[in-house]
Design a protein around this nucleic acid. Sequence first.
DNA 1: TTAGCTGCAAAGCCTTTGCAATTTA
DNA 2: TAAATTGCAAAGGCTTTGCAGCTAA
Lengths: 158, 158
Amino acid sequence: MPDDFSLGSVETKIAPTERFAQFLQARGKRLTRQRRVIVEMVFSHHDHFDAEELIDHLRPLIAARQVSRPTIYRTLGELIDARMLRSIMTVSGRSVYEHDYGYPRHDHLHCQTCGRLIEFQCEPIVRLCEQVAREHDFQVAGHRVFVTGTCAACRQKR
Amino acid sequence: MPDDFSLGSVETKIAPTERFAQFLQARGKRLTRQRRVIVEMVFSHHDHFDAEELIDHLRPLIAARQVSRPTIYRTLGELIDARMLRSIMTVSGRSVYEHDYGYPRHDHLHCQTCGRLIEFQCEPIVRLCEQVAREHDFQVAGHRVFVTGTCAACRQKR
DNA sequence: TTAGCTGCAAAGCCTTTGCAATTTA
DNA sequence: TAAATTGCAAAGGCTTTGCAGCTAA
């Protein structure tokens, strides 16, 4: 029986909701209607998002008292515990989340003009980070490369 | 007459306070007693710091009504405008600042256990970031590499 | 003199928490 | 049934702002 939800070799083979259900069950927690709705919303987009955007998407349900802000924040935290979401960084004071399930590891180019996050993968950078860490006798848990600047679209608009 | 304070080839040749004075003057702003005290405090340590730590250092002056929290926040913003400080990222919701004047560009290893930031420089990483940006037709303004994990000291304590 | 600056108090913003009522397994 | 979860309202924590008095040039 799988117990370690942080590894899992077949992790991309089951639907996010089901995986979350397994995670919850393993902890004696419950898959409530609210949690189900939130996970489905989160994993129906392959986007980076912050809590406010998620809340926007769920606004009809919030208005209908089907789910609330505190529950959304609590569930985001649980999805991070479940390693299904990562908090990538706070831009202007907000936490930004991205999928950590069924989606490859990557880094970002951040356009300062339009705020867009462009994903990229660069193995050599990852290896260099690991090498630097080794030189400092530092044990790596993860890394984050963030390149800021202006995207092609925004440069053309000027 | 120098007008662009973001470049300046001799920027490390004058004291921070004086450079800030020039920046302020060029904008019709004034070097007040408070601003002077804050810049001197900020540049007397070669540390990363957040507003709270700076406020701690200035506490005697705050108690003596010589300077206030809002003025500290306002001055930090001005030091960023002057390109003398950079806001490197928000860890747990706080802005962390570091010197961008008289101090070389670098990146960080961040120990998740003790919170320490270890600086490093790695030109190849910088060049790879630039290359990735080029591939995406993205104009680079800066980059930030953040490696998270556990430092040697914290691993030994366990 | 007079724009610019300051401190105070209060507001903002995003997020978290206490608690009584509700709901899941 | 009993523990877990929810929504509400309120509190937190950091940062910013409005404003009347103060101050640097």
